[in-house]
């Protein structure tokens, strides 16, 4: 008694499951897609380097929130000595005003759902006259 049928079925099911990413991407046609977050109202520079912001913006925003809400501290001194107001809406979104093209680009790509908008009102992108 070999139960060959069952074993082969098992192997096939296993291979299908384990190669899921291969054929899923092939089917979706988005294997080569790469997010390209767009800054539409660029200032000269961000509070930190882009490289730093890519990895750590969430920590920074979290700290800012704590500082503002819990300590009432509203000023950020950047490494280059410039000061900024600690504010998502007034500082960050000055440049990164378009959530759907900027924030969502990567967040969707990485399936991240930040809870910024649990409290903040989502930006009315049309008011910026874009698109």
């Amino acid at each position: 008694m070999y139960d060959a049928g069952k074993v082969i079925t098992g192997i096939i099911v296993f291979l299908i499951l384990i190669t899921f990413p291969f054929w899923f991407n092939a089917a979706s046609g988005r294997a080569t897609y790469k997010p390209d977050p767009e800054i539409i109202t660029p200032d000269d520079q961000c509070v930190e380097t882009a490289e730093y912001m890519k990895r750590n913006h969430m920590d920074m925003l979290n700290q800012w929130r704590d500082q503002v809400v819990r300590e009432g501290q509203r000023t950020f001194v950047a490494p280059d000595g410039k000061t900024y107001e600690l504010s998502l809406s007034n500082t960050c979104m000055n440049c990164h005003s378009n959530k759907s093209e900027f924030c969502d680009a990567c967040h969707n790509y990485m399936a991240v759902s930040p809870f910024c908008w649990d409290c903040h009102i989502e930006p009315q992108e049309t008011t910026y006259g874009y698109k």
Partner: peptide, 19 residues
């Protein structure tokens, strides 16, 4: 020591699409 997730995914997607 946070990773650049976009880069990680780019690597993975490249591998998976044989590019």
């Amino acid at each position: 020591a946070k990773a650049d997730l976009i880069a990680v995914k780019e690597l993975a997607m490249g591998l998976l699409s044989f590019r």
